[in-house]
Design a protein around this nucleic acid. Structure first.
Length: 401
DNA sequence: TCTGGGGTCCTAGGACCC
DNA sequence: TCTGGGGTCCTAGGACCC
């Protein structure tokens, strides 16, 4: 059996800890980040029953003396970068999971930096000393075990799961500790009398599969039995970029919805370009007053990073959803860009009113588009300029260079 | 517990191609 | 003309995670 060489490092109450670090008056006090809903709560606040996603008014009812601060995303992003630098300084392979959480592979480093538990202890000291933040670390043979270990060690803890004692550690835990088990799956498994991870490990695959499907059954059986072959590996590139916005219930005029959608498109398209990517699939999501949801998607025949092209697609999707929107109370809209590609080939679209009529209007439009691209990206970037028949989507090459 | 704002992955059905 | 299997892409919805 291989040694425990995977670290899962997880910053404690991250946003709230950054606030307490930056404002000494908040230290030792219950702190709530987020004015509408609770985005993060300090451990002092958690101890009083405050949790993430809780309504801010309810939180203050429970704990009137709590300090409520508005989120400062830039400060969190900066703090995260500083911590990640320490991660990369600690291990050759770092797999970032989120702004406050990562896996580190530290096998084979005994002669350089010590055993995995020693490396984990040093990491915690450095993050506290250099970034001013408490962090919990789990050490185990697999990613899943390391992750559960860091959770069990919180707050400000270190827990090593020795390979010989994995079942002893894992099996008494409730099934919600398994990755992929949320409310719905918990209900299904409880109905079968399955409550702990050990219960899952002892279940028949056939019974599990009948309740939750083949793939989930295999996944849960593997995790519950300590099997998790996934190596720590740097994250693949992001697969989608999106933004959403919730608003109070009440009817929204068409133009209000449209301008909010345009703002969301503007934000996401900007992030897309900053990342040097282009998207092919544009989708919108809707949430209604009764919390039902709907989504619509459209895939373009070419990748784009252009706000206007994306906005045109988004408007069509909203048009296709108009009846639903009129019938129900809209409470959230979102825009998401998927099928991301490297932006080395980007298509710009310039719509032409009407059919080509031989007047030369279309080639003037094409020249204009070519000039636009050249002014943005410089000479020599254009591989081909084409005209596409919108009805058929067939590119008609008209200029090569 | 009456619900933020980011994401990922999975499933199922239909269109379309060979 | 009908039938079949296999594969890919797309859309919509759902569950889940931090």
């Amino acid at each position: 059996m291989s040694a425990a060489s995977i670290l899962h490092a997880d910053l404690d109450a991250f946003y709230a800890s950054v606030e307490q670090r930056d404002d000494p008056a908040l230290r030792g006090r219950p702190v709530i980040v987020g004015t509408g809903v609770v985005l993060a709560a300090s451990y002092e606040a958690k101890a009083l029953g405050i949790y993430t996603t809780m309504n801010g008014r309810d939180a203050l009812r429970i704990c009137p003396e709590a300090a409520v601060v508005a989120p400062r995303m830039e400060a969190y992003s900066k703090a995260s970068k500083a911590v990640y630098e320490i991660f990369h300084d600690t291990a050759p392979v770092v797999e970032g999971i989120s702004i406050d959480e990562a896996f580190l592979e530290v096998g084979g480093m005994e002669h350089i930096s010590g055993t995995p538990p020693q490396i984990a202890a040093t990491l915690r000291e450095r993050v506290l000393a250099e970034a001013g933040l408490p962090i919990s670390v789990g050490v185990a043979r697999t990613k899943f075990l390391a992750k559960v270990a860091s959770g069990a060690s919180k707050p400000d803890g270190l827990l090593v799961v020795e390979p010989g004692r994995e079942s002893e550690f894992l099996h008494p835990l409730p099934i919600q500790a398994l990755w992929g088990v949320g409310k719905v799956t918990t209900g299904k498994l409880n109905d079968m009398g399955i409550r702990t991870v050990g219960d899952v490990a002892r279940s028949s695959r056939v019974r599990l599969a009948a309740a939750i499907g083949e793939s989930s059954a295999d996944h849960l059986l593997d995790l519950a039995s300590g099997r998790d072959p996934r190596p720590v590996s740097p994250r693949e590139r992001r697969k989608s970029i999106g933004a959403q916005s919730a608003f109070p219930r009440g009817s929204r005029s068409e133009s209000e919805v449209d301008s909010l959608a345009a703002a969301l498109v503007d934000r996401t398209a900007r992030r897309l370009r900053e990342a040097g990517r282009a998207c092919r699939t544009v989708s919108i999501s809707l949430r209604f007053g009764d919390f039902s949801r709907a989504s619509r998607a459209h895939t373009l025949p070419f990748p784009t990073d252009q706000t206007e092209t994306i906005l045109a697609a988004v408007r069509e999707l909203f048009d296709a959803s108009r009846e639903e929107i009129e019938e129900k109370d809209l409470s959230l809209i979102g825009v998401s860009l998927g099928n991301l590609e490297q932006a080395d080939t980007v298509q710009m679209e310039l719509p032409l009113a009407g059919k080509p009529d031989g007047s030369g209007r279309e080639s003037a439009a094409l020249d204009q588009a070519v000039d636009d691209v050249r002014s943005r990206f410089g000479e020599g970037v254009i591989k081909r300029a084409s005209m596409i028949d919108a009805d058929q989507g067939v590119p008609v090459p008209t200029l090569e260079d």
